[in-house]
Structures are given as C-alpha cells and as structure tokens.
Write a protein that binds this DNA or RNA. Structure first.
Length: 204
DNA sequence: AAGTCTCT
DNA sequence: TGGC
C-alpha cells in the first residue's frame, strides 16, 4: 500500500508509467502462464462475423466474450469451463491503485500479436460505471488512443510500455479508446513477443 | 439496440 | 459509417 506515485492525469485518465518493475512483470507473466493453461487464448468473432485480431482469455467470475450472438460477460470460457481465479498479484495492484471498494470480477487478458489492433470502443457492458477500469501493459509497446464520450472529435495517443498501469475512472470511464498499433519485438518480456493487456473490471 | 469491424 |  505504499506504491502509487503521482500519475500523469489527462482528463481523468490516469497513467502510471513504469508502475511495475521488471521482476514484478516477470512474476505476473508466470501467473498468466498458469491461467492460460486452464483457459487458453481464443480469437473472438464480432457479431457481424469478423475475426478480432487480438486473442483473448480471462480470469475471475466473468470473462468478456464476443461471438455471432453478441458481446457479453460470461462465467465460462467458450470451451465451457469456468475461468480461473484472478491471482493475488493482480488483485494487489487493483487494491493499491483503483480507489474502488469493490473487487474486480473480471481480468480480461488480451494478447496482441504482430499487426493486432483494437478498434475504438467504449467499455459499457458493465452494470456499474462508478467502478473504474484498470489496465496493465506487459510486453511490447502499444499505441493507445483516447477519444471522447461519443465517436469522433479530437483524440490523444500514448505509447504504453511494459509495466505501465492506466486507470479510466470518473469522467474518463466511458470514453472511446482503442489500440492503433504494436511495436512488435520492442520488449524482451514475452519470449514469443507481442503485447499483453490485462483489464480489470467490476462487471455486476 | 448495437457494439471492439473495416473503410475513407 | 453501416446495421446482426
């Protein structure tokens, strides 16, 4: 409970650069390996039949999934099994920086390989927008773009690096955001390269 | 109700 | 932007 230094604050979007040091990042990756053994990455399909370029999995009571019948939180992996628990190493980060009294119910795991992107979207499948969304970057640099409460208008871009933590709460909670590109191979954290983004959310 | 898509 |  000693950590958070002052974040860069941009319109209620808080960026904690280098929040995790290298060995903390390595410990997280080791925890993720166990999770992904039980809940393998899958490639979601949008309701209109297009493959997303990121690969996903999750931990916690819910994972976010997309398929032809829509976007939703699901208590099970597409293979039918429940998601693994969110490890304490990750819950600790939530408790230290989220400023939220509820625990996260979903730890989404997004793996971005070479060329993977995430289109601009809002996180709005949750029941309580009072709880923030917390994101942890691991591996290759990713170009994150923040927009506004509606589509269009001016946006701001930031290169997120391994170990960075971002909190979208308050007025930033429902802003459109996305990932425009990955600098594939820019980090040595993940042996196969790529970027992992962990997103913690209260969903119910 | 669309919606993290792809196109300009 | 379009529209399962």
């Amino acid at each position: 409970m000693e950590k958070p230094p002052k974040p860069h604050l941009i319109r209620d979007f808080a960026l904690y650069p280098a929040y995790l040091n290298r060995s903390e990042q390595e410990d997280l990756v080791a925890d993720l390996r166990d999770i992904l053994k039980a809940a393998p990455l899958f490639q979601p399909i949008t309701p209109r039949g297009q493959k997303m370029s990121v690969r996903m999995s999750a931990a916690g009571r819910f994972g976010w999934i997309s398929d032809r019948s829509g976007y939703r939180y699901s208590p099970t992996h597409p293979d039918g099994t429940p998601w693994p628990d969110i490890p304490d190493s990750i819950l600790k980060i939530w408790n230290t920086v989220s400023g939220c009294d509820r625990m996260p119910e979903c730890c989404l795991i997004n793996w971005y390989g070479e060329g993977a992107r995430m289109g601009m979207h809002q996180d709005r499948d949750e029941a309580d927008f009072g709880a923030p969304v917390l994101s942890i970057s691991l591996g290759d640099d990713g170009l994150f773009r923040m927009g506004n409460d509606t589509r269009g208008g001016k946006t701001e871009s930031y290169w997120l690096k391994s170990g960075d933590v971002v909190v979208m709460g308050g007025a930033a909670r429902l802003r459109y955001h996305g990932v425009d590109r990955i600098r594939f191979g820019s980090s040595t954290l993940l042996p196969k390269g790529g970027r992992i983004n962990l997103t913690l959310r209260v969903v119910s």
